[in-house]
């Protein structure tokens, strides 16, 4: 892929990641009873960038999403949470992808789990209270569920995109 095309695609993916963040902000999943549960479709987009374009582009998509969310509907505390989640999950996904240890779904699950764990650690620091770790196990269960869903979706997307690219 040409570099200009890559950059253009990065922009599209960043917009998509931000749009998903915004939708998830508008439709909170609080009713489930565990605070902070999210499907994490933005992470799906970042993973797509990681697999299709590579780490620098994925980091750019993630950074744009985090900064835009902060400016448009976040606060400093939520910025810290999303930075922690974003940086650590991307790092873990990158390493696991490099090691070729898991399939797309496994990487997605690990990304989601890391995202939640990092956010809980951040909130423990912000609130200077360890009691938030109480929420981690139920959060992880949802992380696994949504991680699998996102992984399967991404797997399908990657296959289609590849077919498409070969078809040209």
């Amino acid at each position: 892929m040409k570099k200009t095309k890559k950059i253009a695609l990065t922009g599209v993916l960043a917009a998509a990641a931000f749009a998903f963040s915004y939708v998830e902000y508008l439709i909170p999943f609080d009713m489930i009873g565990v605070p902070g549960v999210k499907p994490g479709f933005a992470n799906l987009v970042i993973m797509a960038a990681l697999y299709m374009l590579g780490l620098p582009y994925a980091a750019a998509v993630s950074a744009v999403r985090i900064v835009l969310s902060f400016l448009l509907f976040g606060n400093v505390t939520s910025l810290i949470y999303s930075l922690a989640g974003g940086v650590f999950s991307l790092a873990v996904m990158f390493v696991l992808k490099k090691l070729n240890a898991f399939d797309v779904t496994g990487v997605s699950v690990c990304g989601a789990v890391t995202h939640n764990a990092a956010q809980i650690c951040a909130s423990a620091l912000v609130l200077s209270s360890g009691s938030v770790f109480y929420y981690l196990p139920p959060l992880l269960i949802f992380a696994v569920i949504f991680g699998v869903i996102n992984g399967v979706i991404l797997d399908l997307i990657l296959k289609r995109v590849k077919m498409n690219a070969q078809g040209r």
């Binding site: 898991f102 496994g106 196990p137």
Partner: peptide
């Protein structure tokens, strides 16, 4: 596929750990 098997094991392990922690 070997990686798919690992994925399934991974999911199982995380679920088991979370459930037992709960």
């Amino acid at each position: 596929n070997k990686t798919v098997v690992r994925d399934i094991i991974l999911v199982g392990v995380i679920l088991a750990v979370s459930l037992s922690l709960i």
